[in-house]
Design a protein around this nucleic acid. Sequence first.
DNA 1: CGCTCAGTTGAAGCATTTCAATTCTTGTGG
DNA 2: CCACAAGAATTGAAATGCTTCAACTGAGCG
Lengths: 250, 250
Amino acid sequence: MLTATPFSYEVQCSRCPLRTCEVFQPATDDELASISTLKAGELRTGPASTVLQEGIPSDQLFTLLEGWAFRYKSLDDGRRQITSFALPGDFLGIQGSMQGEMDHSVETLTPAVLCSFPRKRVWELFQKAPSLAFDITWLSARHESMLNEHLLSLGRRNAVECAAYYLLHLYLRADDVGLVTEGKVRFPFTQDHLADALGLSLVHTNKTLKRLSERGLVQWEHGWCFIPDVAALADIAKFDLEQPRTRPLL
Amino acid sequence: MLTATPFSYEVQCSRCPLRTCEVFQPATDDELASISTLKAGELRTGPASTVLQEGIPSDQLFTLLEGWAFRYKSLDDGRRQITSFALPGDFLGIQGSMQGEMDHSVETLTPAVLCSFPRKRVWELFQKAPSLAFDITWLSARHESMLNEHLLSLGRRNAVECAAYYLLHLYLRADDVGLVTEGKVRFPFTQDHLADALGLSLVHTNKTLKRLSERGLVQWEHGWCFIPDVAALADIAKFDLEQPRTRPLL
DNA sequence: CGCTCAGTTGAAGCATTTCAATTCTTGTGG
DNA sequence: CCACAAGAATTGAAATGCTTCAACTGAGCG
């Protein structure tokens, strides 16, 4: 059941506040014009809203403008795996728009604002705006890299390494889009969500987080997360900090 | 170190023997002409050859024409995670061609034949052959779906479910490209490879496979794998057999 | 025949899960 | 401002699944 409710009005993509983040590559006027043409509207949702659902063909693609969301798959008996978190600037629903139906669901963690594109116009985009088509493929490739790294975590890192990796990953991504202030982020997920992302039980996730904070690698205060020494955490996590971070925004 | 050695000669993509497999969508004459133009040559390798390497920018993209390969990532201490196996028709190296350098390595399991495209012409393809650009993006999306499912396996399936899932996954993909004869496939990997794909130890992988064959779900004879009751295995694995299987071939 | 690599096995140890309470937070109504 | 409810976090203990260690067996090959 889709719990999101649509809300649309005129928007100018060229004035999209997200574009002021320096992680996003500047777009040409032509590209901005194409993006504006394709944009169908905006969607504003509350927290815990299902934006896209596994098994359902989606008519829409989204760019998340504001808020947090997560992608997940479930087994019949209720076991859930969160495959990735989505932050502002992330593209949602490409997989479903290519293959006909979604292979995973997407749910918001916070109130969110999404920019929507009709699925039917994706082909038009490939014909008329090759640079944007390229950007979409680029974003897919980046997402694939994140999934590969996540797979390495679940398969070969132990609980401490895995949690260290994932927290740092989210911290850096949050920083990219300006969500880190004075070294602190407000992570909007519960330990339950984190457990489902790490492939661990809730209890063990809790104990693992405790170990990280006892070692002084991660500090928590009133729901804010602070990482005093990024390099030290990266070391434990076997995290490669040298990855390029700039990317296109659609 | 790249251990593959190049071998090139004229080829006509329209006569590519792989195209006779019905899983591959027919290409138009225009598309075939574009593919032929982009094709730089063929690469023939032995088994255990490194085709692409993590951290290295790749000048080439490949379509695997013959043989098996696998994609993997490693940690410094030698732990390895196989993220996927590649079968004939699979595209290799898109991620690296988009992001500049490979985030994973690719190694062959058998002697292999690969068709190569220069990375520099990918942009040309997006401009001149939008339908092929779309196909590339489509294949990326399909690959993303496989990674999502794999993530669900590593995070939330137990060893038996995970192995059942993965064997069935490989069996069906092999069947798609004509590698299954009388219900049997020759899997070219060792239990070591399988362990690294499932995120399990070698010993536990062995015991898990034994359990599956004791239950009669999978039969092994002289390196050939036979699945007597696909539906029964799918049931254990929580595998959705209703997925569409046809796809483009570049 | 003997080497090597892959597969197999049992036993001990450890990591992670499960179960079952508690405690802490936050928001709400009195 | 306090009391209370509901969700989230925390904790200890017992049970389980998986890993590690250390042999041993079997198949293919020169």
